[in-house]
Design a protein around this nucleic acid. Structure first.
Lengths: 337, 337
DNA sequence: CTGTTAGCGCGTTCAC
DNA sequence: GTGAACGCGCTAACAG
């Protein structure tokens, strides 16, 4: 029952272990005859090379680590699915490190990026600090960021300025002039890259391009959840001169807006247009107009990028920019009455 | 830059590698003094043991494999989250093998259960054949099934007979006598354990207990998706004497029923009661009455069970039976008019 | 208590 | 082309 090793195969085939190793690794310098012998010995013994031993000898772990927050949320699942689709075709295993608390993030940022543990690291939506990246560099583990950015790290990001612009512009083209925006909190960030800032920027740009004056009463920030968005939407809709359209930072928040409108008896899309962002599953279900991010694609591209960089001895930080797409459904319409 | 090894630490601390190994592995037989020395050497050198080398030496891989279909679906995510919560506390890594096709399942069933690869295996919702289990046994990799069963394997299963019973009985207690059931296809299975059969059984039992005659016109099977369920629901609702309540095999299918009712102008719950199964996220959102499975719990229990069996030299197949819970929301009501 | 040594299973020189 | 020997980093068994 003791698992069969390369040595057993060698003995059975009447060759040296080196030769067996060569045929396994497709080395060209093996005569056809011996190759055959070895192959049949392998088959008879049902031999499978030990990945562990292989890794130790190779000095590579053949596994990729993925650090992701809330891997249970649909947006992360989508990205992970993209990652899985490419990694499962490669010979790399991948293991998910799920972070739900700051402590966990810190722990993982400290412990995971080690050559002894993984060959490559992917981090989703968790912008590293300068100090973090410094440590990553020191560990020499190729790293790529997905949905986060840092100048010294490879990354695949969504063009959120453009996405925010598209959302606002859709509303504008419909004829709206009074456009609210309910956003996630805009935290201060050392890098001017966060989606929050970018979408806001896109929103502002669109208004500017259309010659619409920005009205700060229409702009609200709050926690990224439905309840909070609902509360904020009510505030905005209670204004003496309420907006005729609202752009929500995320689909989840858009649902909050929808609920607020419903409670206040404001018809959508007749009296109020609502557009979200992300295009999560529920969005289609509820026929929400939204901006689609290619979440799946970002996972795919991230994994591909990482795989590439694994081979390069000294990978240059590279940026892949993904674009968004407007998906018109039934929560937006021209302002009426 | 070459990573620091146990030998470096030993040299720096002026001790043998064995001693270093001992302090790392918390062996009690090390004097406090030397332990201190070693510890500080480790700290200075920023030494981290190589998991790979450790595994090779130990003869254990310290990783658990989880084979799951469609890990992207909310029900699997829930289970995986449970698994993750216990495994991340252990020293085991875990890697997910996602199967979306039969080929992949076969491939994984063949390649993954190997001592050289993993120490323990968890399989979700994929009932193995006798031949499979035979191979699993041969590989000597402790295996536990979650949401699937085989007499020779440890497993955590949901009491689906009871769940189906609860669903139907809820409808009955509300006063319904004409109760439809839209099910997944009932494939033939060598084991009489599948959820499909069990829920159906529960449904039948409830009818029998209430003295209601079974009407085969009310029973439909189809693909497990919304569209198909919608189609089936329309058929049933078009009957000359349509049911006043429908039990759907899954929440997803229940949504199809809801949609069918909506299209046909049948009000829910006034004219038609609908109950689903699973209690996925969307269910709460849409206020669907349903049967809650403790998906998360089943992941937790499965992982715990596996961890236990890892230590036992010759683990007995064990079964953990989880119960369901009726969650009443607003799609069920007494039959009216 | 602690240093030394022999593997764990494989990839890889090096001579043959 | 091919076999033998060494090393990857660590644990465990054995002396001392």
């Amino acid at each position: 029952m003791a698992s069969v090793t390369i040595r057993d195969v060698a003995k059975k085939a009447g060759v040296g272990v080196g030769t067996v190793s060569r045929v396994i690794n497709q080395s060209p310098s093996v005569s056809l005859a011996t190759r055959e012998k070895v192959l049949s010995a392998i088959a008879e013994l049902k031999y499978t090379p030990s990945p562990i031993a292989r890794r130790l000898s190779l000095g590579k772990t053949m596994t990729i680590g993925v650090i992701t927050p809330f891997f249970t949320r649909s947006s992360y699942i989508e990205r992970l699915r993209g990652v899985e689709s490419v990694l499962s075709q490669s010979e790399y295993d991948f293991i998910i490190y799920n972070v739900e608390t700051v402590e966990r993030r810190d722990k993982y940022f400290r412990e995971i990026p080690r050559r002894e543990r993984i060959d490559g690291l992917m981090i989703m939506s968790l912008p590293p600090t300068d100090e973090d990246t410094w440590r990553f560099a020191e560990s020499e583990v190729p790293t790529v960021l997905v949905d986060a950015a840092h100048p010294s790290l490879s990354r695949v990001v969504i063009d959120d300025v453009d996405g925010g612009y598209k959302a606002a512009m859709h509303l504008i083209e419909l004829g709206h002039r009074k456009i609210g925006y309910i956003s996630d909190y805009m935290k201060d960030s050392p890098f001017h890259f966060t989606p929050v800032q970018e979408r806001y920027q896109g929103y502002r740009n669109a208004l500017a391009d259309a010659g619409i004056e920005y009205n700060s009463d229409y702009y609200k920030q709050g926690e990224l959840n439905e309840q909070e968005a609902q509360r904020l939407a009510k505030e905005v809709l209670s204004l003496p001169d309420p907006p005729t359209a609202i752009f929500a930072y995320s689909d989840t928040q858009a649902f909050g807006v929808l609920r607020a409108a419903q409670e206040m008896g404001v018809e959508v899309p007749e009296k109020l247009s609502v557009i979200g962002y992300d295009d999560i599953e529920l969005a289609e279900y509820l026929q929400l107009t939204t901006i689609r991010q290619s979440l799946y694609q970002s996972g795919v591209r991230g994994a591909q990028l990482l795989l590439e960089q694994l081979d390069e001895p000294f990978p240059e930080p590279k940026e892949i920019l993904l674009t968004t797409k407007l998906v018109v459904r039934s929560t937006t319409a021209p302002p009426c009455c």
